[in-house]
């Protein structure tokens, strides 16, 4: 591990481990808040690459993440789609 923790966790939004760590420390936030503040897991791939890592990291930073609930809620759309497709105009 790099000493400066500049390793990228979320590739799409280029969020580093240290950004996640500092944000969690500063705001003492929930998993969802951490995601919204840093945009980790909110990029084009919809978190398909980094979600499990984020879950792990979040468990380290934020205690009491309940075991059975998925730490970060899944919400539609779970695939990248155009506004047209979602809106029904299907251009």
């Amino acid at each position: 591990m790099h000493k400066d923790n500049t390793i990228i966790i979320c590739r799409c939004e280029e969020v580093t481990y240290s950004t996640l760590q500092e944000t969690a420390k500063l705001h003492q936030c929930s998993a969802r808040e951490l995601k919204l503040r840093t945009r980790a897991g909110m990029g084009f791939c919809g978190g398909r690459t980094c979600r499990p890592i984020l879950d792990r990291v979040i468990e380290d930073f934020i205690p009491n993440t309940t075991a059975d609930a998925i730490p970060l809620k899944y919400q539609p759309p779970v695939r990248a789609v155009t506004f047209g497709t979602v809106g029904g105009s299907n251009d």
């Binding site: 500049t6 390793i7 990228i8 966790i9 590739r11 690459t49 980094c50 499990p52 890592i53």
Partner: peptide, 10 residues
């Protein structure tokens, strides 16, 4: 697949 981030993995 689970990814394992390693510096330079991008």
């Amino acid at each position: 697949e689970y990814a394992i981030p390693v510096p330079g993995w991008t």
